[in-house]
């Protein structure tokens, strides 16, 4: 797999969500993700994520390794951070249903060889972002629930080793 290749439909991406963009109840229990977690900043052209199937093992093992890779990257992962997981095809479909033709591609970076990008995500479709947060890209893992540790992603995807 080379940089810019589209991710397979049945694969997944995982995105770090800071505490301020997690959905909480009135007692600060984390119960989900806010639409804002998927909103592009003014200086961003693509939405960053990490390619889950880049890592070997069961889904649980892949999640652990992906979180360890994110912790080892330049991103700040705090004790109350979370990670949202979404299926590539489901994200494509949700966007397509609202007339947005996005691309989800493998795009390794120096600090995270498993990095992926969501391209052409609209900046101003709050309805779509809420759908992603509520249903499509909403499987949530909390940082505190992942075993302590960090390790950079290996140089090549599991499928190529």
């Amino acid at each position: 797999m080379k940089s810019g290749d589209k991710l397979p439909d049945d694969h997944h991406i995982i995105r770090r969500i800071p505490f301020a963009k997690l959905r909480k109840d009135e007692n600060d229990n984390i119960i989900g993700v806010l639409f804002e977690a998927f909103k592009l900043r003014h200086n961003e052209q693509t939405l960053s994520a990490t390619y889950l199937e880049y890592f070997p093992g069961s889904k649980k093992e892949q999640i652990k390794r992906a979180v360890w890779a994110i912790r080892a990257s330049n991103l700040s992962v705090t004790s109350r951070s979370g990670f949202a997981i979404g299926n590539v095809n489901a994200i494509h479909t949700a966007c397509k249903n609202r007339n947005h033709k996005i691309r989800i591609v493998y795009e390794p970076e120096d600090d995270n060889k498993a990095h992926s990008s969501v391209r052409r995500l609209p900046r101003d479709d709050t309805d779509l972002l809420e759908l992603l947060a509520a249903e499509t890209w909403s499987e949530l893992v909390l940082n505190k629930d992942i075993k302590p540790g960090e390790a950079p992603a290996p140089p090549f995807p599991a499928s190529q080793t």
Partner: peptide
């Protein structure tokens, strides 16, 4: 529940089962 946008707007949320108000 409280959250915030990147540009300094506070977000208030109420959740009832799968029904969400943001």
């Amino acid at each position: 529940g409280l959250g915030a946008t990147s540009n300094g707007h506070i977000i208030a949320t109420w959740t009832s089962g799968k029904n969400r108000l943001t």
